[in-house]
Design a protein around this nucleic acid. Structure first.
Lengths: 153, 153
DNA sequence: GTGGGTTGGTTTAGTTTTGCTACCTACTCC
DNA sequence: GGAGTAGGTAGCAAAACTAAACCAACCCAC
């Protein structure tokens, strides 16, 4: 689907190859929020049923979701995140935070809080050495083969 | 494009509405890395020229990129990130980190380091109150209207 | 001053992919 | 028999994408 230079050599392209279509991340958002059932996700997103079925099997093939039996008779399954799927939380948070900052008028529609203390969470790019928040302009991108710069100017 | 329940009430859907197509994030990745020119991006991504032109004007309309004159005669422009665009760095880092962890064999193809000290960067979900890293299972999602749960089990 | 090359596109035409609607199935419970 | 859940199938429409040609403004060499 993507030309040769991207998928193999770039983790961003690889990730987009897995969850980069128009529905997967919205489905995953629903599962994160606790909508684990086919019919609930379908009516919440307004997605066509065959499309939802397709995306779900794809996400299961990619080991991002798994089917869990929640009712023996009749056999009913629901969709749960695997460890790999749960690890997408930072990505979903990044999407949400950016939307909050640039595409919401007033209050953000949803707030993520720490389960233990109820404090709204933050997302940081951090340098383990300098122990300070890192701004976009202070990021440098090192390619293993060549040496490319990551600039924000 | 998306059904009613999503775009307005959800920052994730809003963000995906802006940069959720198959090319925008790859284009932005290129610009982050220092590829600011039409022809460079086009040959790097292997994208058709009309598509690239479309996406670039869309990204400019959304104030994620801006056209900057870098040569008077002949008039030549290049594409630079605005503040809004640079603010997508956390999202790109999240995409990259996830790809590194789950879709790379061995060494990650690209490493992001702190410009000042050269240390590889990390991305953290943080609680400003508890001062400790937050795991996916400790995140709770509060909807302003109802009250929904964010679970990872 | 004419020909060739570069940059940054636009136009057109055609193909492929995606998505939607509408209906159908299988199982079970009541 | 009817309702609920979890899908599958078929046919069509629309969007996305590709490829190739073309264009304009300029530069440089000859």
């Amino acid at each position: 689907m993507q030309p040769g230079t991207t998928e193999e050599h770039c983790s961003i392209a690889a990730t987009l190859g897995v969850i980069g279509d128009r529905w997967s991340l919205l489905i995953l958002r629903d599962v994160f929020r606790g909508n684990h059932r086919f019919s609930v996700i379908q009516s919440d997103l307004g997605i066509a049923k065959n499309l939802l079925a397709d995306r779900l099997t794809q996400l299961i093939d990619d080991e991002i979701l798994e089917k869990v039996l929640y009712c023996e008779r009749p056999a009913r399954y629901e969709y749960r995140l695997t460890a790999k799927g749960a690890d997408l939380s930072a990505l979903l948070i990044a999407l949400m935070k950016w939307g909050d900052r640039w595409h919401s008028d007033g209050e953000p529609p949803t707030v993520l809080v720490h389960r233990e203390c109820g404090t709204p969470l933050e997302l940081h790019v951090a340098c383990p050495h300098c122990d300070a928040p890192v701004r976009p302009g202070q990021i440098r991108s090192l390619n293993q083969a060549t040496t490319e710069e990551m600039t924000t100017h």
